[in-house]
């Protein structure tokens, strides 16, 4: 499937991944993330139960300490 991931096209060999699977496939390793799927915030506890479908727009923002 093809999705828009952080403003870029991303292709995955399998269809029907969860957000948690996308995060692990892409090696997004930071502990704290902000995730929006098609504009809606998806909290960490829902990453494993939220499915990403072909054509979706997914944003994964890495949050690093410092400010």
């Amino acid at each position: 499937m093809k999705i828009n991931l952080n403003n870029r096209e991303a292709t995955f060999e399998v269809t029907d991944l969860t957000i948690a699977e996308v995060i692990s496939t892409c090696n997004f390793t930071y502990k704290r993330l902000v995730v929006r799927l098609n504009g809606k915030v998806v909290r960490s506890e829902d990453h494993e139960i939220t499915r990403v479908n072909d054509g979706d727009k997914l944003e994964v923002i890495h949050l690093m300490a410092g400010g």
Binding site: L33, V34, I61, L63, M64, A65, G66, G67
Partner: peptide, 18 residues
Amino acid sequence: EAFDKADQKQMLAECVLQ
């Protein structure tokens, strides 16, 4: 967003966006 701790950045971002 001008916090220093990552968990606080997450809390603020999720709250503001929603």
